[in-house]
Design a protein around this nucleic acid. Sequence first.
DNA 1: GATGAATGAGGATTCATTCAT
DNA 2: AATGAATGAATCCTCATTCAT
Lengths: 215, 215, 215, 215
Amino acid sequence: MGTDSGQGARASAGPARRRGPSPEKTARTRAQVVQAAMAEFLDQGYSAATMAGVARRAGLAKGTLYLYFPTKEALFAGIVRDIVTNPLQEAEAQAIGAEETVADYFRRTLVPVMRRIESSGRAAVARLILAEGARFPVLAEVYREEVFHPLVDHIRLHAARAIARGEPGGEILARHPHLLIAPLWVGMVNNGVIAPDRPLDIGAMFEASLDLIFR
Amino acid sequence: MGTDSGQGARASAGPARRRGPSPEKTARTRAQVVQAAMAEFLDQGYSAATMAGVARRAGLAKGTLYLYFPTKEALFAGIVRDIVTNPLQEAEAQAIGAEETVADYFRRTLVPVMRRIESSGRAAVARLILAEGARFPVLAEVYREEVFHPLVDHIRLHAARAIARGEPGGEILARHPHLLIAPLWVGMVNNGVIAPDRPLDIGAMFEASLDLIFR
Amino acid sequence: MGTDSGQGARASAGPARRRGPSPEKTARTRAQVVQAAMAEFLDQGYSAATMAGVARRAGLAKGTLYLYFPTKEALFAGIVRDIVTNPLQEAEAQAIGAEETVADYFRRTLVPVMRRIESSGRAAVARLILAEGARFPVLAEVYREEVFHPLVDHIRLHAARAIARGEPGGEILARHPHLLIAPLWVGMVNNGVIAPDRPLDIGAMFEASLDLIFR
Amino acid sequence: MGTDSGQGARASAGPARRRGPSPEKTARTRAQVVQAAMAEFLDQGYSAATMAGVARRAGLAKGTLYLYFPTKEALFAGIVRDIVTNPLQEAEAQAIGAEETVADYFRRTLVPVMRRIESSGRAAVARLILAEGARFPVLAEVYREEVFHPLVDHIRLHAARAIARGEPGGEILARHPHLLIAPLWVGMVNNGVIAPDRPLDIGAMFEASLDLIFR
DNA sequence: GATGAATGAGGATTCATTCAT
DNA sequence: AATGAATGAATCCTCATTCAT
């Protein structure tokens, strides 16, 4: 967020003639920083995270971090987008089939994602959003715009479609689209923090939720 | 949490003969500390909270805090119970009527609580649990034992009752009791962090959820 | 400047009833800080001075400094007034005698001050003013208002008196009051930095200057 | 100052046979470095000056500076001579006329220089000398040997001449040669730091001083 | 020669904790 | 019991210096 070192504008035009370290090396280092920062912030939260911790994880010196991000806060802001990449993007991208009911469509596209959602540190992300969202509005904002609202809109859209087609459940889903993703949150909360040793089956809950809504 | 400074076992036995502050005064001061600490930790999270901040809120000197809790961590641990007091306790305490369906029972006892849940800083509590639960297992543990499990058990119990009585929805609720409280979490997450300016009506979502489950 | 711990408003009213360290102790510590900071800044200049250096000189921990001044810059600003206390104050305070010529008056009141000016670290002060005045306008400003202008005004005033009385030298002094203090500056520069091992006799130069101006 | 990277002894001897940059190029780069360093040090003082700042001003990379000077301190020492170039050199070089009084000689040769002295950043130089002279004796030393003493000796020499010729003012000038340059210092101090917005007319003060000394 | 990414020691500042009063 | 000045370890950040390209 503001510290991008201006890559991107070199395409054809022959071999780069730069002195010193290659842009590739720089990009790799930057990636290391981002990677390490993500891990550190997800592990520790913003306040408890230390630049030294990030540096250690990245295998770099502390000072190096400041070549890429001017402050700890900027580093945090800079990785927010990387942290909240929408896990449902691929699901949203798939179109509904002509004959397919909305229920079947959700079952086909969303259930697999829900099942996978845990393995990839989603609980940690949720934790960070909830923990720091109040003090770093940008975090909540990015999450809202990139993940939360798109998903809810996606659901609303298909709720409308269900109504149009006369499929049951459309009405209730249009009124309370959040009900569909509610199981996701209890699941992440339970599995990530409350009782990781007795995890809930988010996929199963989601399917049950689908069954309930669509009769 | 092992930090109580040993009051408590002195009650009758004639008029107290000691100089200095009365036990009442001490208890009052302790209450101030706990109160202030709760506010500070809920506001700031563990790391960002400061002992100075707690002292300021309590209207006490920093040193005084250490008369009641030996470390910041102990203070945090010491107030966990106060933080997570079960907001559903009264609801759980009410018995189901002989003629009452489980659905009606939940509607009668839980909906009002759900509606009130937001006003009393519940989102802040949720935030704290999620944020610090991983690093302070005791926090997650207390929450699990005092709030989460009791509520889920309560739901399970009445799901069994619904089955026994042949009321619809019992089966699904028995298999997925968390579904009933799922709206609570999306609601708190949305209203507390994601989009406080466009709050979800948790009560309405909960009722909708009840309707779905119990037909 | 801004961190004064509010002494001053306690006069009669019986013994102070404060808990904790006495105000006297606090005042003494503050004095230590100021003293040490003065020495450090005069020795090292602003940039090269370190808070650790100040703490060491004061015999205090680093953190303690921050109880009295919130930043290094504030500490610097806070001692500027102490640093530039007008060394000529007593001289200016003495009134000219009814029969006394202005030349004699200056000889009586200023020469002793000039002779003493070196011993009391005045060169170090001048050095600091010149060195940091550009980057810390407040420093130059305080020096100008507290020392430089008062002295020049004092000279101008008595130049006018000399003119009124028909004493020689008044005219030239009125036109160039700075000429009278010029020897002070070459002297301080020479003795403080250029050739401390071959100091100029500022008193003698000043007297010679007086002789020249007043014939 | 012992930092020259060993150019200089290669001149005739046929066409140079080396690859890479010519000695001219090197010399030019070195000049850029010196120029930039002077500006940076005069602006910021030694401690606050940064190698990055010098590099930026020079339009070079940081690493390049180290090809010419091994350390920041060496760079500073290396430019001291450039910083303190004697502004009075030309004046001192001019011989006194056979019929010319010493007073007239000084008026002819020194006044113009004095009038010009302000425009060329002399205050900055004085500031640097005073600020860093104590910690970088070489700075004071060079200034003393290149500027201060030559000028004072020049004055002494002509004071002796004035005495020999029976011109008035010779005695006093011989005893206090620094009196003649005193106005210069108050002037630079006032105009450079104390009150740049109300500058003193150094030329006028110097002339007045000449008038006083030579009757 | 020139570059600038990488380094890490050093400096300002914060804050949990102690202790004399 | 209560105070708050004092402490110093820990943290963020800067910058002189190095070195692979």
